[in-house]
Write a protein that binds this DNA or RNA. Structure first.
Lengths: 216, 216
DNA sequence: GACTCATGTAAACGCCCTTCACATGAAAGT
DNA sequence: ACTTTCATGTGAAGGGCGTTTACATGAGTC
């Protein structure tokens, strides 16, 4: 095994402290929430002095912002894979997309917290903002494909549809999606709740499950 | 003006420290977010020593939980007033309800943060949990009145409808509702976004704006 | 008027955040 | 090969915060 990306503390220089700090942040956020982790904790976790992280991040917020940026990039990949260009049909792919969103929020709680709940302003870092917009872009693309299924007269703006789906999905993820604390109990799994909401919403747009096959 | 509830620091005893601490917390949360306020700050704001708050709250989290509980109670009142027993008809009242929700999230950012984003487990305090459930109860009631407009066969569970509406509203409030930081830009005001979403959703349930008048 | 007890204070401990001068060693230049 | 350079990590220090403890105060009670 190579030590290039490993975590063996070698001599005076760590060699990969930045990566180690990001992983420490993920570990600690998952454990104690985005507020319950300290810069010094991350340093200790990486086996360096409390001052070392300042060589790589301006402050604690910059570290969280970097975690959030990486989270958005992971997120984009996950959503894109789930959407899979709308195959075999837009409705099926949208269902996968929603489940992937909830699954990400549950499995990657640390990323999700950093992305949406850590109080990081999206504009604080242009790279963060762009990463977030790329993730939303997947939803936007999906909405465009859905809207294209409708008769040209009376098509709603695809952007609005994307925002609606994003909002309800994020709302469910925020309120009920996480496994640990702050959960509210629910009479059904979040995935079913979301699926039902989207089905009803799409029916309201005039898109039944029958309109999916055929014309692309 | 009476000093009974005022903020004049009298002699050795403050007289109203608990209230003063809650107001300090609201002020500071509104200013710097739920993470960016310290117990000692609240004490300084109230003009007492850093140890004084411990006579009234076990720790910082207990203070935030109390703020959240009060927030839910305010919230319940606001939602109930907006719903107004479903008058003049359920759809109109639901629209008011959604706007009141967003308005509360925007105007009472400090409360809203404490209620939903401060990482307070709803079960940490039974009173907090009950207050939250009373607030949701208003939505549940509204959903029941809406569902009652539908033909008995094929009525969706009112609880599910309430959860859907809560989720999309909370999602919009979380993502776009706040005025200051962490805002994402939007091509339309959040209120319109929500109104459109709910209209489409209700149409998907078979409830057009025409079904509102008449039978209650 | 003396007592009681909730309420506030002061001091102290440990931890955290941040900065500073300084140490180290990998990589570049000659 | 030797020196230089500079990013990277260290140690110590200052200030702040959270919390606990022993003590002070004074409002209400008998």
């Amino acid at each position: 095994m190579t030590w290039g990306k490993g975590d063996g503390p070698r001599g005076y220089h760590h060699g990969n402290l930045k990566e180690a700090l990001v992983r420490a942040a993920l570990e600690l956020i998952a454990e104690k929430g985005p507020a319950g982790f300290t810069f010094a904790d991350a340093a200790r976790w990486a086996g360096v002095s409390p001052a070392a992280p300042y060589r790589h991040f301006r402050d604690r917020d910059a570290l969280i912002a970097d975690v959030a940026r990486r989270g958005f990039e992971e997120f984009t990949g996950v959503l894109q894979a789930a959407w899979n260009d709308g195959r075999p049909d837009a409705m099926t792919a949208l269902d996968r997309l929603g489940k992937a969103y909830l699954d990400f929020a549950k499995r990657e709680q640390a990323y999700y917290s950093a992305m949406f709940e850590a109080g990081v302003a999206p504009d604080s870092d242009p790279q963060l903002r762009e990463a977030g917009e790329r993730a939303f872009g997947v939803l936007r693309m999906a909405a465009e494909k859905l809207v294209a299924l409708m008769p040209p007269q009376g098509r709603p703006p695809a952007l609005m549809v994307a925002l609606h789906i994003w909002s309800v999905t994020h709302g469910i993820a925020s309120l009920f999606g996480r496994g640990d604390a702050a959960r509210r109990t629910l009479p059904m799994p979040p995935e079913e709740l979301l699926e039902a909401a989207v089905l009803i919403y799409l029916r309201g747009l005039g898109l039944g499950p029958d309109a999916t096959s055929g014309r692309s």
